[in-house]
């Protein structure tokens, strides 16, 4: 059975995020008042084969821990979008 997951990876709060800081400044310059902060992340879409949704989720979780996210600087969330 095919499952589709969307993994969102975000910079851990409190860490330097040059992309976010630069975009935040630019938005303020462009007149968007009230921008507190902007943080950058990435979305990874994964299609995989597994017997159950639970099993698929476990696998994706393992992928995040091992490769897709760096726990030193990143958090991740997993969503089943099948």
């Amino acid at each position: 059975m095919k499952h589709t997951f969307s993994v969102t990876i975000e910079r851990r709060s409190g860490l330097s995020d040059p992309e976010g800081a630069t975009a935040s400044r630019a938005l303020t310059d462009l007149g968007f008042a009230g921008v507190h902060s902007v943080s950058f992340g990435k979305v990874i879409s994964i299609e995989l084969e597994a017997d159950t949704a639970q099993e698929a989720a476990t696998q994706v979780e393992a992928m995040c821990r091992k490769l897709l996210a760096n726990p030193v600087i990143e958090n991740y969330t997993i969503e089943n979008v099948s």
Partner: peptide, 17 residues
Amino acid sequence: LCEAGLLPGALVANRDL
């Protein structure tokens, strides 16, 4: 080395991008 966990920390984009 940082990714491999042999050294602490991580390296990200330069401040001025």
